[in-house]
Design a binder for these strands. Sequence first.
DNA 1: AAGTTATGCGGACCGTGGTCCGATTAACTT
DNA 2: AAGTTAATCGGACCACGGTCCGCATAACTT
Lengths: 220, 220
Amino acid sequence: MRMSAGTPRIGPTGDTLAGPVELDLTSVDGERRPRADAVRNRAKLLDAAARLMADCGAANLTMDAVAAEAEVGKGTVFRRFGDRNGLLLALLDHEEQRLQEAFLSGPPPLGPGAPAIDRLRAFGPAVMRHELDNLELYLAAEPPAERRCVVPARGLRRSHLAILLRMTEATTDVELAAETLLASLDTPLVHHLVEQRGFSLARLESGWQDLVTRLATPLP
Amino acid sequence: MRMSAGTPRIGPTGDTLAGPVELDLTSVDGERRPRADAVRNRAKLLDAAARLMADCGAANLTMDAVAAEAEVGKGTVFRRFGDRNGLLLALLDHEEQRLQEAFLSGPPPLGPGAPAIDRLRAFGPAVMRHELDNLELYLAAEPPAERRCVVPARGLRRSHLAILLRMTEATTDVELAAETLLASLDTPLVHHLVEQRGFSLARLESGWQDLVTRLATPLP
DNA sequence: AAGTTATGCGGACCGTGGTCCGATTAACTT
DNA sequence: AAGTTAATCGGACCACGGTCCGCATAACTT
């Protein structure tokens, strides 16, 4: 459905020697350096999207409108981001990176420096808070069923959890436990619990702590 | 968004006595008995939808096509089911009921008669198997983010889990634990684990058992 | 049986997501 | 500097989900 990607790639580029060093920089695997207008347009589009999002809310963010606001053809939007969801995901990326920094290299107990179990305990609340802070975006960018589990951000969270779990004395199937933890942080779920069912954030957080404890403690 | 439902309802029906008994049957709360052609069309639509689903797959199930196949106007489809998702949900309903019967009144250990902990242990595998059996439908009928947690089927599963959990010696926040369990059975998640990540069903099942055990066992 | 009402019907209509292909132009070659 | 190539651009185009409103008719009233 998406691009054949089967271009033979028998290099008729500068090849053997011509633009040697920087070619390594831009093309790790034979990729092409993107054209100047392409990156310019990408930036314009993201900017326009963010602006419209702020003004009209995510629901009214139409692809046509983004294209118009960015003064760019509609086709360009789809070329750059694949589909509406891709655009939203790209927007989300920025926020997500801040979260990632926090648990990859931020201060303990979330970041490195604290015992794994404490980092695990801190992870849930951090994610919940982060997602509730950027709720609209996270809800709007929710991918459709099949792709939901494959979104890169999820992958990172997943392996982070798995690594931490493995450092505890847990006897469980670590991979699965990570999935379980991940699932319990699902944005729409958390949102629903807080908004429609009246769970306090504190309750959710202590629920998370409890879950972590139970998963990281060997059964008697 | 859906019907005002504010009709005053000062009963100009047969009222005080005319069609007394069956009126109670059809109108529990003053509701109107649906018109004959309405129920006929509803049936025709569900039938047509099922047929198309079997033939072309869920992805190609367009509302126009269903209307045409049922020899009915397009408006009727939307009137009856609200939106595409409503139609899918209605289709799903039938299968879901079979599952519900199984854990509400079927044979133990899934149904009543076995200790709560065993029923809990049996619940996960039953749901997973059921959803994987009707995978296409369950995936297609996945509601969009906001409504996902509110779908009736989910409510029933939730309270069932909560009730069983309360019957064990669990010390946890039962409501939350039920949500966690529910989340770990999410159809797209299970599907993804099995298909893309190569988890065996057996592994998922024993993962479920483990999770139940940990949630239903008091912490030391 | 005929009249009245309000419920359901149907298909023209609209907005939006997504595709396609000819014109355009950046990057590389000579 | 001019030419070549291949990727980008852009907007006309399409399909599908969802709405609307005048018409038909089932169910109730007399």
